[in-house]
């Protein structure tokens, strides 16, 4: 049996090659291959190239099943940046790679856990989009409990 190679295309039109038997760990790709043989390029319009490179790194370095759990953990541990991890989780969700998504989400939760409000905003590059009036409304909402 010859090893077939698939080509994945990221959002920014970069091409990545990956062997088919590794790529089909993604349920989404597996279904695509089943449907039309996937002879041509598989477009992934929601995944940018940096994230796709990570996903492919993950798929390529797959370990023996019993070491898999540790490997996924280590893989996400090496990526300490919350936005990167969230992108990875989103890509894993799109590609339906459950283990990677679970691990990435768990890592994000672990990282956010000890953060203060400001630190979360900073790490995620989220701006506080609420007006002072809304802030006050939130404070007042549960005033009855205090």
């Amino acid at each position: 049996m010859s090893k077939k190679t698939l080509t994945l295309m990221s959002k920014d039109k970069q091409l990545f090659n990956i062997e088919e038997h590794l790529a089909v760990q993604s349920v989404t790709i597996r279904n695509m291959v089943k449907e039309d043989g996937a002879s041509s390029v598989i477009p992934l319009p929601r995944v940018d190239s940096e994230t796709l490179a990570l996903v492919i790194e993950y798929l390529n370095r797959q370990q023996a099943p019993e070491e898999d759990e540790d490997y996924v953990k280590k893989f996400v541990d090496e990526r300490g940046e919350i936005p990167t991890l969230l992108e990875l989780a989103q890509a894993a969700l799109d590609l339906d790679i459950k283990k990677l998504m679970d691990a990435a989400c768990m890592k994000v939760a672990d990282l956010i856990k000890d953060f203060t409000l400001e630190e979360v905003r900073e790490a995620l590059r989220i701006e506080n989009d609420r007006t002072p009036e809304e802030e006050k409304a939130i404070r007042d909402e549960f005033q009855w409990a205090f």
Binding site: D48, T51, E87, A89, A91, L93, A109
Partner: peptide, 15 residues
């Protein structure tokens, strides 16, 4: 960022 489109169930339920 793409993750802003992450479904609420994942953001809420998983994280």
């Amino acid at each position: 960022p793409n993750w802003l489109q992450m479904p609420d169930e994942i953001m809420g339920g998983m994280i």
